[in-house]
Amino acid sequence: MPSLSSSASPYDSVVTALRAAGCVFAEDEARLLLDAAPGPDELAAMVDRRATGVPLELVVGWAEFRGLRIAVEPGVFVPRRRTEFLVEQALAQVPDATVVVDLCCGSGAVGAALADALPGAELVAADIDPAAVRCASRNVAPFGGQAHAGDLYAALPGRLRGRIGILAANVPYVPSDEVALLPAEAREHEPLVALDGGGDGLDVLRRVVAEAPDWLAPGGCLFVETSERQAPTAVETFARGGLAARVVVSEEWYANVVIGVRS
């Protein structure tokens, strides 16, 4: 395990240790670790955790998402920067949304980012994992949001039925037999329930689509991220569920978002 040099500057010492551990962005990570560590002992412990493969976000306790610092905790899915594209699409499609739901919310990053851009909107987040709900509660509270535990729509207050303008569902979409191919940071430090989407990766998506028309307001939209390979099947699923569907793609973020509109 890399150790910090007592002769080099703290920054150079951390960079060297991170490089030795194979961290590609050692310089950037070193700055974040130095900023987060209260003292040298804590810094050494944080560098050791990062060197053993713990995601940087879990080491420092937060992830940046659309300009926000989103608190993250061990055992909670770390928000991906590419999912900012989903948020951008939701805001472009429903810029006047007054009710926002972040389903399969994980840390609540998507909901927090949407609420940050939609002052006054009612925000509810939900996840089946109690650890995620605890974390999301911290992140949505500054926007007046609430987080609930439960299986998809079962977690939502009944008063939201037929009123949701933006329904963002960052569902797990990795096919079960491909989970083992994910980077170790995801496999070893993030909950399986947030990664494994079943046989073809779309099991949870199908369940979300099946009930979405009952919860969306007229003109309300469902936004789901998928892989490029899954997008055509996802669009068909949306259409069978009664939603007018299309795919938007970001080459920059390598992101694919399926948008479904309730008529």
Rank of each mutant, 00 (worst) to 15 (best):
Y254I: 13
N139H: 08
L205N: 02
P38M: 11
G219D: 10
E236D: 15
G162K: 06
P142I: 01
A37M: 14
S107P: 13
C221E: 01
G108A: 05
A231D: 07
V101A: 13
S107T: 14
D48F: 02
V247S: 12
E252R: 15
P175F: 03
R82N: 11
A117S: 12
S227V: 10
E57Y: 08
P10C: 07
G61Q: 08
V224M: 07
L181G: 13
V124Q: 03
S6E: 06
A245G: 06
E27I: 06
F77W: 05
R240H: 15
P40W: 00
S13T: 07
A37P: 09
A147I: 07
G165V: 10
P38F: 12
R246A: 01
V261M: 04
E84K: 01
P218S: 09
A45S: 13
A17R: 02
A234L: 02
L56W: 00
Y254F: 04
V72A: 11
A8T: 05
V258H: 01
W253Q: 11
E42N: 10
P157W: 12
A109W: 07
E190N: 09
D41V: 15
A115Q: 05
M46F: 02
D200G: 09
I128Q: 00
A21K: 12
R66W: 04
P40I: 02
L114T: 07
R31C: 08
S7G: 03
I128D: 06
L4S: 03
V14I: 11
R138E: 04
Y153Q: 08
P2H: 07
G53Y: 01
R187W: 08
A231T: 13
V15Q: 05
L18P: 05
N256F: 14
A180S: 12
G145M: 15
D12V: 11
T233V: 15
E185H: 07
A63T: 13
E225K: 10
L181P: 00
C135W: 00
A90R: 03
R262S: 03
L152H: 02
A26R: 05
L222H: 07
P40N: 01
A245L: 08
L4T: 07
D102P: 15
R138M: 05
E64S: 09
F85T: 03
N256Y: 03
G241I: 10
S3L: 08
V60D: 06
S250K: 02
V133Q: 12
V124L: 12
D203V: 06
P172W: 04
V261D: 00
I164S: 13
D28T: 15
L68F: 02
R187C: 03
G150D: 11
R138I: 06
A17L: 06
H189C: 05
R31L: 13
L216T: 07
D116K: 01
A239C: 11
A149K: 13
A194Y: 01
G242A: 09
A36L: 00
E64W: 14
P74V: 02
F223K: 01
G145D: 03
D102H: 15
